[in-house]
Amino acid sequence: MSGRLENRTALVTGATSNIGRAIATAFGAEGAHVAVSGRNAERGQEVVDAIRAAGGRADFVHADHDGSAARSRALAEEAMRVLGGRIDVLVNNAGTYPPTTTPATDEPTFDEVYGVNVKAPYFLTAAIAPAMATAGRGVIIDLGSWIARLGIPISALYSSTKGAVETLTRAWAAEFGPSGVRVNAISPGVIRPASTPEGSAAPGESMMRGTPANAPGAPDAIAKAAVYLASDDAIFVHGTVIDVDGGRTGVAVVAA
């Protein structure tokens, strides 16, 4: 790696598996001191150990996102403590995805999904962005989704939360950008979980047939985009949602 994040600190939420783990690992390899955040301490420590084994710096920070401002503030405070007093990069990655239809969604599920996917990153950003603005620098990366802009017949609830996140990205860029904070988002396509057994189909794999990629992506593809946005290579990038989706939303799908 090139050390593009040398001497920077980063908090990555939902960093104990899949996309979050890939982002945390890539940040560590690029020189950042990473706060690996998640609910499962054992899996979180595995990520920390892997980053340290590769010569990077990382610490685990427990988080149980419920959407409350109090828990988001507590996470921000603990991450700032383990990172030595500042957070240079925030990655709002943690999320929950119930594959349910609209009629089958009950109110507790609705509230939980909006709590984790929208309220938690909202109040975490509210807790961290002002210090970035005061310092005159900082990066916030949100995770959207390709189904925020291309409707599919399931998961309307999840889709709507990611649409909200992508809208917040643009609003936050307008709010905090003039103070030196860059806010952007990544919209992943169908990503093959690292835990998918060899030879098995990944969830949603059929959605990628006929796209330019013609297959799901890997978590590392999202991590590379995150490194770019976090680094000075993206110094002139504000309020943008980068599609890393194998062409799923931008290119006509040709039926096989």
Rank of each mutant, 00 (worst) to 15 (best):
A252F: 01
T102W: 09
M132C: 02
A26N: 00
A215R: 15
A213I: 05
S231P: 09
A94G: 09
A94W: 04
I191E: 04
D66S: 12
T101R: 08
G247R: 07
L83A: 06
F110Q: 02
I87M: 13
V241K: 06
R8D: 00
P197T: 00
A53D: 15
G136Q: 10
A148K: 02
D49M: 06
A15P: 10
D233K: 07
R170M: 14
D49C: 01
R73A: 14
T105A: 07
R57V: 05
G144R: 10
R209W: 13
A135Y: 04
G31D: 11
S200V: 11
G151L: 11
R248F: 13
R57T: 13
A202C: 11
N184C: 15
S37T: 01
S187W: 04
P219F: 00
V61L: 04
T105S: 03
P216Q: 12
P193N: 03
A127L: 09
A15W: 04
A174R: 15
S72M: 01
A133V: 04
A171N: 08
S200T: 14
T240D: 03
A173R: 12
A223P: 01
S72V: 00
T161C: 11
V118H: 02
A104Q: 14
G239F: 03
V116I: 14
G3D: 05
G38H: 08
G84Q: 01
T211E: 09
A185K: 12
G20K: 02
L150Y: 06
N117P: 14
G95N: 02
K162Y: 11
A185Q: 12
G28Q: 09
A22F: 00
N18Q: 06
K224G: 06
G246H: 05
I128Y: 11
F110N: 01
H33E: 05
V34R: 10
G151W: 05
E46R: 15
G3K: 00
V241F: 00
T125D: 05
T240S: 10
G144S: 05
V48L: 09
Q45E: 15
A194I: 12
I51Q: 12
G14Y: 08
V12S: 05
G95A: 15
E107V: 15
I222A: 05
A69S: 15
G210E: 07
A255G: 03
A174E: 12
M208D: 01
E205V: 08
A79D: 01
S68K: 06
I152Y: 12
Q45I: 03
L11I: 06
D88A: 12
M80F: 01
G20T: 04
N184V: 10
R192T: 05
M207L: 15
G67M: 10
A35K: 03
N117Y: 03
M80S: 14
G95K: 04
E42Y: 09
R192C: 08
Y114V: 04
N7T: 11
A120P: 00
V139F: 03
